[in-house]
Design a protein around this nucleic acid. Structure first.
Length: 645
DNA sequence: TCTCTCACTTC
DNA sequence: TGAAGTGAGAG
């Protein structure tokens, strides 16, 4: 692939033009100049480190504690990357998206679906602190995201990833060939999902086995180990029995010595390649079975290895696993445990997988828009489509340039998705995550602005940076549904404007997408989008919020449950659903960056049913448009707003 | 369920 | 030495 970035830009440009913006050419030019290279082709391969450890947790149903002050993930999310162009610069990111739209409860020693998911918090994209760095640097050693912290504090200002307790999430890893974070929006994202890393966020451990596994493997929890002393003693006794169960699995690894931890950990860090688990198939998640049942045995003993990376295409079973989670599955899960395989497969998987997840869902129309994107199509986006996508994906990566969202389908999704906005955090260098300012991205978007949305955005954002980027998409998106504003998707970075699907994207494998394109696309859908956008801006929300976002790289998968707030958010009035929105918003706002986009809105979750949602979405959009129209005129009048430029 | 404090560990 | 990360356990 020649330059994805450029391509993306180009696309964007196209869209823009379509929109009628003039800037695009200039943008393109500038982009080109920016773009470094010319790049040598690359074919990134990503393997999860400490896969065995992850598999052990996965079998039991991984739980990650979330606290107000932020808690790290354990096992730590660490990957080894190869196949990059040594000289080219890359930005590595990670985000955590909802695996489905269900809420869980740990009952009778197992995780069961307990209803619809709560509204999603705005998602934040965590940019690895070392980004951007050359391919050679990234490939030199495993890339760890251990500094990423999870929190349930919707007002978090530290840039931590905000999650809902008792909800299932899927971490995703993204590789973007770009020498500057500002270029993210126009760049192609290659996304990798490791099904074994999904987990349920909890404020307190539910499964003793998980607790024990953590204690046995996390160095900081040594004090609770049996050998150790301390409080643990009590527990020990209690737990011992159970412990053993898990222990067994673990032990192999860790044991050794002392600490287990060491053993395990290290492993984690390092190799991980194989997985014991037989996982492949499915451990599946929590849901069912896992945990208890088998603790030990399976695990290690058998271990199989799973393919490490699973490119989407792979479709392998593993992939499936991943997907499954998606919303659709909730129901299924409920009852049972999951076994996964099935689900995966087909329908689900494919779509879920890459396709939909990211792109999938909504994209159809957009596709058109995008037109070019090649890969995308395949994916197809519909959500429902379910199956389709898969094939397309098959290949591993999908490039999507654009996000499908925009299209009508998008709309829906957008709307829905819009809720979440995503922010980028990057630790840039420091290790701490930063937010990227939306503004930064903005530019690129000139296109965006072109779209006209700009001012809207601006208004919305309030100056936020994001706007820009956002805008772009925003335009349409933004407008629209309120949701959009935020982003279009849920997750976009606000700044970047890259949204992520809530659930979504679980593709197991890598897929790529061009943000820019997406943006453009989003815009494009134009009509619909536009309409939407308009509205958005108007939304009260918008105004306040800041919405921004724009396109996203991913598609949203989702379906949103109608009930969810999203919808509400989506609605004009609703906009705010208070809850979420507010929360989110707050959080973001609070966020370091002023900008904060916040978005949040809603959740995102996409509604559950795409289809239904569509209609609804459309209706909403229309309504919104109307509203917006009115608002807009007002806004225009009003001096205050800044215009984006 | 969630929050907070505590004892303990790593770095 | 102290900051930071852990799960326990009480509330």
């Amino acid at each position: 692939m020649p330059d994805p970035g450029l391509a993306g830009a180009a696309e964007a440009g196209l869209h823009v033009s379509a929109l009628g913006h003039h800037h695009q050419a200039a943008h393109l030019r500038s982009l080109k100049s920016l773009e470094p290279e010319e790049e040598v082709e690359d074919d990134p391969k990503v393997t999860l480190e400490a896969k065995e450890l992850w598999d052990q947790f996965h079998k039991l149903g991984t739980e990650m504690v979330i606290t107000k002050s932020g808690r790290r993930m354990f096992p730590p999310f660490k990957v080894r990357v190869s196949g990059l162009d040594k000289k080219a610069k890359y930005i590595l990111l990670m985000d955590i998206v909802a695996a489905d739209d269900c809420r869980y409860k740990f009952h009778n020693s197992r995780w069961m679906v307990a209803g619809k998911a709560d509204p999603e918090m705005p998602k934040r994209m965590y940019i690895h602190p070392d980004s951007p760095a050359t391919g050679e640097q990234w490939m030199a050693k495993p890339v760890a995201f251990h500094k990423l912290k999870l929190t349930n504090n919707i007002s978090d200002k530290h840039g931590f990833t905000i999650l809902n307790s008792m909800h299932k999430y899927q971490p995703r890893f993204h590789i973007v060939r770009a020498n500057d974070i500002l270029k993210l929006p126009y760049s192609t994202f290659r996304t990798y999902v490791f099904p074994e890393t999904d987990f349920i966020a909890v404020t307190a451990y539910q499964n003793d086995k998980i607790t024990q596994l953590k204690i046995d493997n996390n160095p900081f929890a040594k004090g609770f180990r049996d050998t150790g002393n301390g409080r643990r003693e009590k527990r020990k006794q209690l737990s011992l029995p159970s412990l053993r169960m898990y222990e067994e699995p673990c032990k192999p690894d860790r044991d050794g010595g002392e600490s287990d931890a060491s053993s395990c950990e290290p492993s984690a860090v390092r190799d991980a390649l194989h997985s014991p688990v037989g996982a492949l198939p499915s451990p599946l998640r929590l849901k069912g079975s896992g945990r208890e049942e088998k603790p030990g045995p399976d695990s290690d003993a058998e271990v199989e290895k799973v393919p490490e990376e699973r490119p989407v295409a792979a479709a392998s079973p593993s992939a499936e696993d991943v997907t499954p989670r998606s919303s659709p599955r909730c129901l299924e899960e409920r009852g049972k445990e999951r076994h996964s395989p099935e689900k995966v497969k087909d329908g689900a998987s494919p779509r879920d997988g890459p396709g939909e997840g990211l792109f999938g869902t909504r994209g159809l129309e957009k596709d058109k828009v995008e037109g070019r994107r090649k890969e995308t199509d395949p994916a197809k986006k519909d959500t429902e489509g379910g199956g389709l996508g898969k094939e397309a994906f098959a290949p591993l990566m999908v490039h999507t340039d654009s996000p499908p969202h925009l299209s009508a389908g998008h709309l829906q999704s957008l709307a829905l998705s819009g809720l979440h906005g995503q922010q980028f955090f990057s630790p840039l260098g420091t290790g701490q995550p930063l937010f990227i300012h939306p503004g930064q991205f903005a530019m690129a978007p000139g296109a965006f602005s072109a779209m006209g949305m700009g001012h809207l955005l601006a208004s919305v954002t309030g100056g936020g940076s994001l706007e820009n980027g956002a805008l772009s998409s925003a335009p349409g998106a933004a407008g629209t549904a309120t949701p959009f504003p935020f982003h279009l998707s849920q997750h976009m970075l606000a700044s970047q404007g890259i949204p992520m699907p809530t659930f979504g994207g679980l593709f197991p494998y890598p897929y790529t997408y061009m943000a820019a394109a997406a943006a453009a696309a989003s815009a494009m859908p134009a009509s619909s989008a536009a309409a939407a956008a308009g509205p958005l801006s108007r939304n009260p929300f918008l105004g306040s919020s800041r919405p921004r976002l724009r396109f996203s790289p991913y598609q949203l998968p989702v379906t949103i449950p109608p009930s969810t707030n999203l919808l509400t958010t989506g609605l004009p009035a609703s906009l705010n659903p208070g809850s979420e929105g507010s929360k989110a918003g707050s959080s973001r706002e609070s966020s370091p960056l002023p900008e904060v986009p916040l978005h949040k809105t809603g959740s995102q979750r996409p509604s559950a049913s795409p289809k239904g949602s569509l209609k609804e979405s459309l209706n909403e959009l229309q309504n919104i448009q109307r509203l917006v129209s009115g608002l807009e005129s007002q806004r225009e009048l009003s001096p205050g707003r800044e215009s984006p430029k």
